[in-house]
Design a protein around this nucleic acid. Sequence first.
DNA 1: ATCTATCTGTTGTATTTGCAACAACAGGAA
DNA 2: TTCCTGTTGTTGCAAATACAACAGATAGAT
Lengths: 219, 219
Amino acid sequence: MRDLSELLLFSGIPDPECLRMAQCFEAPVKSFSPGEIAYSYGTEKRCIGVLEQGQAQLVKIDAFGARSLLERLSEGDAFGEPIAFSSQPYDSVSVECESSCRILFLPWEKLTKPCKNACECHQALIGNLFSLLSQKARSLSERVEVLSCRCIREKLLCYFRILSSQSGEGLFTLPFTLSALADFLCCDRSAMMRELKKLKESGVLLPAGKNAYFLRSPA
Amino acid sequence: MRDLSELLLFSGIPDPECLRMAQCFEAPVKSFSPGEIAYSYGTEKRCIGVLEQGQAQLVKIDAFGARSLLERLSEGDAFGEPIAFSSQPYDSVSVECESSCRILFLPWEKLTKPCKNACECHQALIGNLFSLLSQKARSLSERVEVLSCRCIREKLLCYFRILSSQSGEGLFTLPFTLSALADFLCCDRSAMMRELKKLKESGVLLPAGKNAYFLRSPA
DNA sequence: ATCTATCTGTTGTATTTGCAACAACAGGAA
DNA sequence: TTCCTGTTGTTGCAAATACAACAGATAGAT
Protein backbone atom coordinates (compact mmCIF):
# COMPACT_ATOMS: atom_id res chain seq x y z
CA MET A 1 0.00 0.00 0.00
CA ARG A 2 1.72 3.12 -1.18
CA ASP A 3 -0.84 5.78 -1.84
CA LEU A 4 -4.40 6.25 -0.68
CA SER A 5 -5.33 7.54 -4.12
CA GLU A 6 -4.58 4.07 -5.54
CA LEU A 7 -7.62 2.75 -3.72
CA LEU A 8 -10.90 2.69 -5.58
CA LEU A 9 -12.51 4.75 -2.85
CA PHE A 10 -10.01 7.58 -3.25
CA SER A 11 -9.33 7.34 -6.97
CA GLY A 12 -9.03 10.69 -8.68
CA ILE A 13 -8.36 12.45 -5.42
CA PRO A 14 -4.81 13.73 -4.81
CA ASP A 15 -3.07 12.07 -1.86
CA PRO A 16 -2.66 15.25 0.26
CA GLU A 17 -6.42 15.79 -0.06
CA CYS A 18 -7.10 12.22 1.08
CA LEU A 19 -5.01 12.73 4.18
CA ARG A 20 -6.69 16.06 4.85
CA MET A 21 -10.11 14.45 4.57
CA ALA A 22 -9.10 11.53 6.77
CA GLN A 23 -8.12 14.09 9.41
CA CYS A 24 -11.31 16.06 8.85
CA PHE A 25 -13.27 12.81 9.40
CA GLU A 26 -11.22 11.99 12.49
CA ALA A 27 -10.74 8.58 10.90
CA PRO A 28 -8.54 6.30 13.01
CA VAL A 29 -5.96 3.92 11.53
CA LYS A 30 -5.60 0.78 13.64
CA SER A 31 -3.27 -2.20 13.51
CA PHE A 32 -4.23 -5.82 14.21
CA SER A 33 -2.47 -9.12 14.75
CA PRO A 34 -3.34 -12.35 12.91
CA GLY A 35 -6.53 -13.88 14.31
CA GLU A 36 -7.77 -10.66 15.84
CA ILE A 37 -11.30 -9.38 15.21
CA ALA A 38 -10.93 -6.00 13.55
CA TYR A 39 -14.59 -5.11 13.39
CA SER A 40 -17.91 -6.55 14.49
CA TYR A 41 -20.96 -5.62 12.46
CA GLY A 42 -23.84 -4.09 14.29
CA THR A 43 -22.18 -3.60 17.64
CA GLU A 44 -19.73 -0.85 16.72
CA LYS A 45 -20.15 2.53 15.11
CA ARG A 46 -21.24 2.40 11.47
CA CYS A 47 -18.22 2.90 9.31
CA ILE A 48 -16.42 1.87 6.16
CA GLY A 49 -13.18 0.02 6.80
CA VAL A 50 -10.42 0.19 4.22
CA LEU A 51 -7.82 -2.56 4.42
CA GLU A 52 -4.56 -0.70 3.81
CA GLN A 53 -2.35 -3.67 4.55
CA GLY A 54 -2.83 -7.40 5.12
CA GLN A 55 -5.43 -10.09 4.45
CA ALA A 56 -8.69 -10.62 6.30
CA GLN A 57 -11.92 -12.59 6.20
CA LEU A 58 -15.52 -11.53 6.45
CA VAL A 59 -17.07 -14.22 8.62
CA LYS A 60 -20.67 -14.82 9.62
CA ILE A 61 -21.86 -16.85 12.60
CA ASP A 62 -25.60 -17.34 12.51
CA ALA A 63 -28.20 -17.83 15.23
CA PHE A 64 -27.47 -21.58 15.21
CA GLY A 65 -23.74 -21.17 15.59
CA ALA A 66 -22.94 -22.17 11.99
CA ARG A 67 -19.93 -20.34 10.67
CA SER A 68 -19.56 -19.29 7.03
CA LEU A 69 -17.00 -17.36 5.04
CA LEU A 70 -18.66 -14.49 3.23
CA GLU A 71 -15.72 -12.83 1.60
CA ARG A 72 -11.94 -12.67 1.52
CA LEU A 73 -10.50 -9.20 1.83
CA SER A 74 -7.20 -8.19 0.30
CA GLU A 75 -5.18 -5.00 0.36
CA GLY A 76 -7.27 -2.09 -0.84
CA ASP A 77 -10.64 -3.76 -0.27
CA ALA A 78 -13.34 -2.06 1.73
CA PHE A 79 -15.93 -3.47 4.10
CA GLY A 80 -18.72 -2.29 6.37
CA GLU A 81 -22.43 -2.92 6.71
CA PRO A 82 -23.33 0.06 4.55
CA ILE A 83 -21.48 -1.74 1.75
CA ALA A 84 -22.93 -5.19 1.89
CA PHE A 85 -24.33 -6.59 5.11
CA SER A 86 -26.83 -4.74 7.20
CA SER A 87 -26.88 -5.88 10.78
CA GLN A 88 -29.21 -8.84 11.31
CA PRO A 89 -30.01 -8.93 14.99
CA TYR A 90 -29.73 -12.72 15.24
CA ASP A 91 -26.38 -13.38 13.69
CA SER A 92 -22.96 -11.86 13.99
CA VAL A 93 -20.75 -10.79 11.12
CA SER A 94 -17.19 -9.79 11.80
CA VAL A 95 -13.86 -9.12 10.13
CA GLU A 96 -11.12 -11.52 11.21
CA CYS A 97 -7.52 -10.76 10.33
CA GLU A 98 -5.56 -13.55 8.65
CA SER A 99 -2.26 -11.70 8.73
CA SER A 100 -1.14 -8.49 10.41
CA CYS A 101 -3.46 -5.78 9.18
CA ARG A 102 -3.60 -2.01 9.06
CA ILE A 103 -7.10 -0.65 8.65
CA LEU A 104 -8.49 2.84 8.10
CA PHE A 105 -11.93 3.39 9.61
CA LEU A 106 -14.05 6.08 7.98
CA PRO A 107 -17.12 7.06 10.01
CA TRP A 108 -20.18 6.63 7.85
CA GLU A 109 -22.05 9.77 8.84
CA LYS A 110 -19.08 11.98 8.04
CA LEU A 111 -18.48 10.19 4.78
CA THR A 112 -21.97 10.73 3.46
CA LYS A 113 -22.62 14.23 4.77
CA PRO A 114 -20.65 17.19 3.46
CA CYS A 115 -18.13 18.42 6.04
CA LYS A 116 -18.06 21.96 7.44
CA ASN A 117 -14.94 22.84 5.44
CA ALA A 118 -17.05 22.19 2.35
CA CYS A 119 -14.41 20.58 0.20
CA GLU A 120 -14.70 19.76 -3.46
CA CYS A 121 -13.13 16.37 -3.05
CA HIS A 122 -15.92 15.20 -0.83
CA GLN A 123 -18.22 15.11 -3.84
CA ALA A 124 -15.72 12.97 -5.69
CA LEU A 125 -15.52 10.71 -2.64
CA ILE A 126 -19.29 10.21 -2.60
CA GLY A 127 -19.17 9.40 -6.30
CA ASN A 128 -16.44 6.83 -5.67
CA LEU A 129 -18.44 5.32 -2.85
CA PHE A 130 -21.33 4.80 -5.26
CA SER A 131 -18.97 3.15 -7.74
CA LEU A 132 -17.69 0.87 -5.01
CA LEU A 133 -21.19 -0.17 -4.05
CA SER A 134 -22.40 -0.72 -7.57
CA GLN A 135 -19.32 -2.72 -8.47
CA LYS A 136 -19.95 -4.97 -5.49
CA ALA A 137 -23.58 -5.41 -6.52
CA ARG A 138 -22.52 -6.23 -10.05
CA SER A 139 -20.04 -8.90 -9.08
CA LEU A 140 -22.62 -10.44 -6.77
CA SER A 141 -25.20 -10.48 -9.57
CA GLU A 142 -22.75 -12.29 -11.80
CA ARG A 143 -22.05 -14.81 -9.08
CA VAL A 144 -25.78 -15.45 -8.66
CA GLU A 145 -26.15 -15.88 -12.40
CA VAL A 146 -23.40 -18.50 -12.46
CA LEU A 147 -24.63 -20.34 -9.38
CA SER A 148 -28.19 -20.42 -10.66
CA CYS A 149 -27.19 -22.79 -13.47
CA ARG A 150 -28.55 -26.28 -12.84
CA CYS A 151 -25.52 -28.36 -13.76
CA ILE A 152 -21.75 -28.07 -13.74
CA ARG A 153 -21.49 -27.83 -17.52
CA GLU A 154 -23.82 -24.83 -17.55
CA LYS A 155 -22.04 -23.21 -14.62
CA LEU A 156 -18.75 -23.46 -16.47
CA LEU A 157 -20.17 -22.10 -19.71
CA CYS A 158 -21.96 -19.27 -17.92
CA TYR A 159 -18.81 -18.23 -16.09
CA PHE A 160 -16.66 -18.54 -19.20
CA ARG A 161 -19.10 -16.39 -21.14
CA ILE A 162 -18.88 -13.69 -18.49
CA LEU A 163 -15.09 -13.81 -18.55
CA SER A 164 -14.93 -13.69 -22.33
CA SER A 165 -17.45 -10.85 -22.47
CA GLN A 166 -14.99 -8.88 -20.39
CA SER A 167 -11.96 -9.63 -22.53
CA GLY A 168 -13.93 -9.93 -25.75
CA GLU A 169 -13.84 -12.29 -28.74
CA GLY A 170 -14.26 -15.51 -26.76
CA LEU A 171 -10.73 -15.41 -25.37
CA PHE A 172 -10.31 -15.37 -21.61
CA THR A 173 -7.89 -16.10 -18.79
CA LEU A 174 -8.90 -17.89 -15.61
CA PRO A 175 -8.21 -15.75 -12.57
CA PHE A 176 -7.94 -18.85 -10.29
CA THR A 177 -6.45 -22.29 -10.16
CA LEU A 178 -8.85 -25.03 -11.25
CA SER A 179 -9.29 -26.11 -7.64
CA ALA A 180 -10.38 -22.59 -6.69
CA LEU A 181 -12.67 -22.52 -9.71
CA ALA A 182 -14.49 -25.56 -8.34
CA ASP A 183 -14.94 -23.77 -5.01
CA PHE A 184 -16.21 -20.70 -6.83
CA LEU A 185 -18.74 -22.78 -8.77
CA CYS A 186 -19.66 -24.64 -5.59
CA CYS A 187 -19.11 -28.10 -7.01
CA ASP A 188 -16.78 -31.03 -6.67
CA ARG A 189 -13.44 -30.58 -8.36
CA SER A 190 -13.27 -34.04 -9.93
CA ALA A 191 -16.80 -33.69 -11.28
CA MET A 192 -15.84 -30.33 -12.72
CA MET A 193 -12.73 -31.81 -14.34
CA ARG A 194 -14.93 -34.40 -16.05
CA GLU A 195 -17.15 -31.70 -17.50
CA LEU A 196 -14.12 -29.63 -18.56
CA LYS A 197 -12.77 -32.63 -20.42
CA LYS A 198 -16.08 -33.11 -22.21
CA LEU A 199 -16.14 -29.44 -23.22
CA LYS A 200 -12.64 -29.71 -24.64
CA GLU A 201 -13.42 -32.98 -26.45
CA SER A 202 -16.52 -31.54 -28.06
CA GLY A 203 -14.51 -28.54 -29.27
CA VAL A 204 -16.52 -25.90 -27.42
CA LEU A 205 -13.55 -24.99 -25.26
CA LEU A 206 -10.06 -24.64 -26.74
CA PRO A 207 -6.97 -24.32 -24.53
CA ALA A 208 -4.99 -21.23 -25.52
CA GLY A 209 -1.94 -21.16 -23.29
CA LYS A 210 -1.27 -20.91 -19.58
CA ASN A 211 -4.67 -20.56 -17.87
CA ALA A 212 -6.04 -19.13 -21.12
CA TYR A 213 -8.90 -20.57 -23.14
CA PHE A 214 -11.00 -19.80 -26.16
CA LEU A 215 -14.76 -20.30 -26.00
CA ARG A 216 -16.48 -21.10 -29.32
CA SER A 217 -19.71 -19.24 -29.68
CA PRO A 218 -22.63 -21.62 -30.22
CA ALA A 219 -23.06 -21.66 -34.02
CA MET B 1 -48.68 4.18 -6.74
CA ARG B 2 -50.02 6.95 -4.61
CA ASP B 3 -47.19 8.93 -3.14
CA LEU B 4 -43.56 9.30 -4.10
CA SER B 5 -42.60 9.37 -0.44
CA GLU B 6 -43.81 5.77 -0.13
CA LEU B 7 -40.88 4.69 -2.27
CA LEU B 8 -37.71 3.68 -0.51
CA LEU B 9 -35.77 6.24 -2.50
CA PHE B 10 -37.91 9.11 -1.25
CA SER B 11 -38.72 7.83 2.22
CA GLY B 12 -38.67 10.52 4.88
CA ILE B 13 -39.02 13.26 2.30
CA PRO B 14 -42.38 15.08 2.12
CA ASP B 15 -44.20 14.63 -1.17
CA PRO B 16 -44.16 18.30 -2.21
CA GLU B 17 -40.40 18.29 -1.77
CA CYS B 18 -40.11 15.17 -3.94
CA LEU B 19 -42.00 16.86 -6.74
CA ARG B 20 -39.92 20.02 -6.37
CA MET B 21 -36.73 17.98 -6.60
CA ALA B 22 -38.00 16.03 -9.60
CA GLN B 23 -38.59 19.38 -11.32
CA CYS B 24 -35.21 20.68 -10.20
CA PHE B 25 -33.61 17.56 -11.73
CA GLU B 26 -35.65 17.99 -14.91
CA ALA B 27 -36.58 14.34 -14.45
CA PRO B 28 -38.94 13.09 -17.17
CA VAL B 29 -41.85 10.71 -16.48
CA LYS B 30 -42.47 8.42 -19.46
CA SER B 31 -45.13 5.84 -20.25
CA PHE B 32 -44.57 2.53 -22.01
CA SER B 33 -46.68 -0.21 -23.55
CA PRO B 34 -46.27 -3.92 -22.78
CA GLY B 35 -43.22 -5.34 -24.56
CA GLU B 36 -41.56 -1.98 -25.04
CA ILE B 37 -37.92 -1.41 -24.05
CA ALA B 38 -37.95 1.34 -21.45
CA TYR B 39 -34.23 1.68 -21.01
CA SER B 40 -31.04 0.24 -22.50
CA TYR B 41 -28.01 0.15 -20.25
CA GLY B 42 -24.87 1.80 -21.53
CA THR B 43 -26.33 3.50 -24.57
CA GLU B 44 -28.51 6.09 -22.86
CA LYS B 45 -27.76 8.76 -20.31
CA ARG B 46 -26.85 7.40 -16.88
CA CYS B 47 -29.87 7.58 -14.66
CA ILE B 48 -31.90 5.87 -11.98
CA GLY B 49 -35.30 4.71 -13.15
CA VAL B 50 -38.13 4.42 -10.65
CA LEU B 51 -41.03 2.20 -11.70
CA GLU B 52 -44.07 4.16 -10.56
CA GLN B 53 -46.57 1.85 -12.18
CA GLY B 54 -46.51 -1.55 -13.87
CA GLN B 55 -44.26 -4.62 -14.05
CA ALA B 56 -41.01 -4.95 -15.95
CA GLN B 57 -38.03 -7.24 -16.45
CA LEU B 58 -34.32 -6.60 -16.35
CA VAL B 59 -32.99 -8.67 -19.24
CA LYS B 60 -29.45 -9.38 -20.34
CA ILE B 61 -28.34 -10.55 -23.77
CA ASP B 62 -24.69 -11.54 -23.81
CA ALA B 63 -22.05 -11.53 -26.53
CA PHE B 64 -23.21 -15.00 -27.63
CA GLY B 65 -26.84 -13.98 -27.94
CA ALA B 66 -27.92 -15.90 -24.83
CA ARG B 67 -30.78 -14.19 -23.04
CA SER B 68 -31.16 -14.24 -19.28
CA LEU B 69 -33.58 -12.69 -16.83
CA LEU B 70 -31.66 -10.75 -14.20
CA GLU B 71 -34.48 -9.33 -12.15
CA ARG B 72 -38.21 -8.75 -12.03
CA LEU B 73 -39.23 -5.19 -11.26
CA SER B 74 -42.46 -4.30 -9.50
CA GLU B 75 -44.08 -1.03 -8.60
CA GLY B 76 -41.73 1.10 -6.53
CA ASP B 77 -38.55 -0.72 -7.61
CA ALA B 78 -35.60 1.19 -8.95
CA PHE B 79 -33.11 0.25 -11.64
CA GLY B 80 -30.12 1.73 -13.44
CA GLU B 81 -26.48 0.77 -13.95
CA PRO B 82 -25.33 2.85 -11.01
CA ILE B 83 -27.49 0.56 -8.89
CA ALA B 84 -26.47 -2.83 -10.07
CA PHE B 85 -24.89 -3.27 -13.46
CA SER B 86 -22.02 -1.24 -14.75
CA SER B 87 -21.91 -1.21 -18.53
CA GLN B 88 -20.13 -4.23 -19.96
CA PRO B 89 -19.18 -3.35 -23.50
CA TYR B 90 -19.95 -6.82 -24.91
CA ASP B 91 -23.43 -7.51 -23.68
CA SER B 92 -26.62 -5.54 -23.56
CA VAL B 93 -28.83 -5.12 -20.54
CA SER B 94 -32.25 -3.54 -20.90
CA VAL B 95 -35.54 -3.00 -19.13
CA GLU B 96 -38.50 -4.61 -20.90
CA CYS B 97 -42.02 -3.72 -19.83
CA GLU B 98 -44.36 -6.62 -19.10
CA SER B 99 -47.42 -4.46 -18.62
CA SER B 100 -48.11 -0.78 -19.24
CA CYS B 101 -45.54 1.13 -17.23
CA ARG B 102 -44.96 4.64 -15.97
CA ILE B 103 -41.35 5.36 -15.13
CA LEU B 104 -39.59 8.33 -13.54
CA PHE B 105 -36.06 8.89 -14.82
CA LEU B 106 -33.70 10.68 -12.43
CA PRO B 107 -30.48 11.86 -14.09
CA TRP B 108 -27.56 10.43 -12.19
CA GLU B 109 -25.29 13.48 -12.20
CA LYS B 110 -28.01 15.68 -10.75
CA LEU B 111 -28.89 13.07 -8.17
CA THR B 112 -25.38 12.77 -6.79
CA LYS B 113 -24.29 16.39 -7.00
CA PRO B 114 -25.91 19.04 -4.82
CA CYS B 115 -28.21 21.24 -6.88
CA LYS B 116 -27.83 24.99 -7.11
CA ASN B 117 -30.90 25.56 -4.94
CA ALA B 118 -28.98 23.74 -2.22
CA CYS B 119 -31.86 21.88 -0.62
CA GLU B 120 -31.77 19.96 2.61
CA CYS B 121 -33.74 17.08 1.21
CA HIS B 122 -31.04 16.33 -1.28
CA GLN B 123 -28.84 15.01 1.52
CA ALA B 124 -31.64 12.74 2.66
CA LEU B 125 -32.05 11.55 -0.92
CA ILE B 126 -28.37 10.63 -1.15
CA GLY B 127 -28.68 8.77 2.13
CA ASN B 128 -31.69 6.86 0.79
CA LEU B 129 -29.80 6.03 -2.37
CA PHE B 130 -27.06 4.47 -0.26
CA SER B 131 -29.66 2.46 1.66
CA LEU B 132 -31.15 1.25 -1.61
CA LEU B 133 -27.76 0.14 -2.89
CA SER B 134 -26.67 -1.58 0.29
CA GLN B 135 -29.99 -3.36 0.63
CA LYS B 136 -29.58 -4.69 -2.90
CA ALA B 137 -26.06 -5.86 -2.10
CA ARG B 138 -27.25 -7.53 1.07
CA SER B 139 -30.04 -9.50 -0.57
CA LEU B 140 -27.63 -10.63 -3.29
CA SER B 141 -25.12 -11.75 -0.66
CA GLU B 142 -27.80 -13.81 1.02
CA ARG B 143 -28.74 -15.38 -2.28
CA VAL B 144 -25.11 -16.32 -2.94
CA GLU B 145 -24.88 -17.82 0.53
CA VAL B 146 -27.93 -19.99 -0.11
CA LEU B 147 -26.85 -21.05 -3.59
CA SER B 148 -23.36 -21.91 -2.42
CA CYS B 149 -24.72 -24.83 -0.40
CA ARG B 150 -23.79 -28.13 -2.03
CA CYS B 151 -27.05 -30.01 -1.64
CA ILE B 152 -30.76 -29.28 -1.54
CA ARG B 153 -31.09 -30.07 2.15
CA GLU B 154 -28.41 -27.50 3.00
CA LYS B 155 -29.93 -24.92 0.66
CA LEU B 156 -33.26 -25.29 2.41
CA LEU B 157 -31.74 -25.06 5.88
CA CYS B 158 -29.59 -22.08 4.94
CA TYR B 159 -32.53 -20.19 3.51
CA PHE B 160 -34.79 -21.10 6.43
CA ARG B 161 -32.13 -19.90 8.85
CA ILE B 162 -31.97 -16.55 7.06
CA LEU B 163 -35.75 -16.24 7.17
CA SER B 164 -35.97 -17.17 10.82
CA SER B 165 -33.13 -14.81 11.70
CA GLN B 166 -35.29 -12.05 10.32
CA SER B 167 -38.43 -12.99 12.19
CA GLY B 168 -36.56 -14.43 15.18
CA GLU B 169 -37.01 -17.50 17.36
CA GLY B 170 -36.93 -20.05 14.57
CA LEU B 171 -40.39 -19.15 13.31
CA PHE B 172 -40.74 -18.00 9.71
CA THR B 173 -43.16 -17.60 6.84
CA LEU B 174 -42.30 -18.54 3.27
CA PRO B 175 -42.66 -15.56 0.95
CA PHE B 176 -43.25 -17.84 -2.08
CA THR B 177 -45.15 -20.89 -3.17
CA LEU B 178 -43.13 -24.10 -2.95
CA SER B 179 -42.74 -24.13 -6.72
CA ALA B 180 -41.21 -20.67 -6.63
CA LEU B 181 -39.00 -21.75 -3.73
CA ALA B 182 -37.55 -24.50 -5.94
CA ASP B 183 -36.80 -21.90 -8.62
CA PHE B 184 -35.20 -19.65 -6.03
CA LEU B 185 -32.99 -22.47 -4.78
CA CYS B 186 -32.23 -23.46 -8.38
CA CYS B 187 -33.21 -27.08 -7.99
CA ASP B 188 -35.87 -29.51 -9.15
CA ARG B 189 -39.18 -29.12 -7.35
CA SER B 190 -39.82 -32.82 -6.81
CA ALA B 191 -36.31 -33.34 -5.45
CA MET B 192 -36.89 -30.42 -3.12
CA MET B 193 -40.20 -31.90 -1.94
CA ARG B 194 -38.39 -35.12 -1.04
CA GLU B 195 -35.87 -33.22 1.08
CA LEU B 196 -38.63 -31.18 2.69
CA LYS B 197 -40.39 -34.38 3.68
CA LYS B 198 -37.20 -35.75 5.23
CA LEU B 199 -36.72 -32.54 7.21
CA LYS B 200 -40.26 -32.76 8.54
CA GLU B 201 -39.92 -36.48 9.36
CA SER B 202 -36.71 -35.93 11.26
CA GLY B 203 -38.37 -33.19 13.29
CA VAL B 204 -35.99 -30.41 12.23
CA LEU B 205 -38.79 -28.56 10.46
CA LEU B 206 -42.24 -28.23 12.02
CA PRO B 207 -45.22 -26.92 10.03
CA ALA B 208 -46.80 -24.01 11.90
CA GLY B 209 -49.78 -22.96 9.83
CA LYS B 210 -50.33 -21.58 6.35
CA ASN B 211 -46.87 -21.19 4.74
CA ALA B 212 -45.42 -20.92 8.25
CA TYR B 213 -42.80 -23.22 9.75
CA PHE B 214 -40.68 -23.59 12.83
CA LEU B 215 -37.01 -24.48 12.51
CA ARG B 216 -35.48 -26.37 15.43
CA SER B 217 -32.00 -25.16 16.23
CA PRO B 218 -29.49 -28.03 16.10
CA ALA B 219 -29.09 -29.07 19.76
C1' DA C 1 -72.27 -25.02 -9.63
C1' DT C 2 -68.51 -26.28 -13.15
C1' DC C 3 -64.46 -25.55 -15.40
C1' DT C 4 -59.92 -23.92 -15.30
C1' DA C 5 -55.19 -22.94 -13.70
C1' DT C 6 -51.87 -23.77 -10.64
C1' DC C 7 -49.98 -25.73 -6.78
C1' DT C 8 -48.94 -29.74 -3.91
C1' DG C 9 -47.47 -34.28 -3.15
C1' DT C 10 -45.64 -38.70 -4.77
C1' DT C 11 -43.01 -42.21 -7.27
C1' DG C 12 -39.74 -44.82 -10.66
C1' DT C 13 -35.90 -44.35 -13.31
C1' DA C 14 -31.94 -42.28 -15.74
C1' DT C 15 -28.43 -39.07 -15.19
C1' DT C 16 -25.40 -36.19 -12.74
C1' DT C 17 -22.70 -35.40 -9.07
C1' DG C 18 -19.90 -36.15 -4.91
C1' DC C 19 -16.56 -38.88 -2.59
C1' DA C 20 -12.35 -41.40 -2.03
C1' DA C 21 -8.36 -42.71 -3.71
C1' DC C 22 -4.55 -42.55 -6.56
C1' DA C 23 -0.60 -41.09 -9.82
C1' DA C 24 1.88 -37.56 -12.33
C1' DC C 25 3.66 -33.08 -12.23
C1' DA C 26 5.44 -28.46 -10.88
C1' DG C 27 7.57 -25.09 -7.89
C1' DG C 28 9.81 -23.77 -3.72
C1' DA C 29 12.59 -24.70 0.33
C1' DA C 30 16.19 -27.16 2.72
C1' DT D 1 19.97 -32.88 -5.39
C1' DT D 2 15.76 -34.29 -2.28
C1' DC D 3 11.75 -33.33 0.07
C1' DC D 4 7.54 -31.19 0.52
C1' DT D 5 3.28 -29.09 -0.74
C1' DG D 6 -0.17 -28.04 -3.83
C1' DT D 7 -2.29 -28.54 -8.38
C1' DT D 8 -3.84 -31.32 -12.20
C1' DG D 9 -5.82 -35.31 -14.14
C1' DT D 10 -8.25 -39.76 -13.69
C1' DT D 11 -11.36 -43.60 -12.18
C1' DG D 12 -15.04 -46.64 -9.73
C1' DC D 13 -18.77 -46.45 -7.04
C1' DA D 14 -22.37 -44.65 -4.07
C1' DA D 15 -25.47 -41.03 -3.31
C1' DA D 16 -28.01 -37.11 -4.73
C1' DT D 17 -30.55 -35.02 -8.12
C1' DA D 18 -33.26 -34.20 -12.38
C1' DC D 19 -36.76 -35.73 -15.30
C1' DA D 20 -41.26 -37.38 -16.36
C1' DA D 21 -45.52 -38.57 -15.26
C1' DC D 22 -49.28 -38.76 -12.48
C1' DA D 23 -53.28 -37.79 -8.92
C1' DG D 24 -55.40 -34.93 -5.58
C1' DA D 25 -56.09 -30.20 -3.62
C1' DT D 26 -57.05 -25.42 -4.06
C1' DA D 27 -58.45 -21.14 -5.70
C1' DG D 28 -60.39 -18.13 -9.28
C1' DA D 29 -63.30 -17.36 -13.14
C1' DT D 30 -67.63 -18.20 -15.77
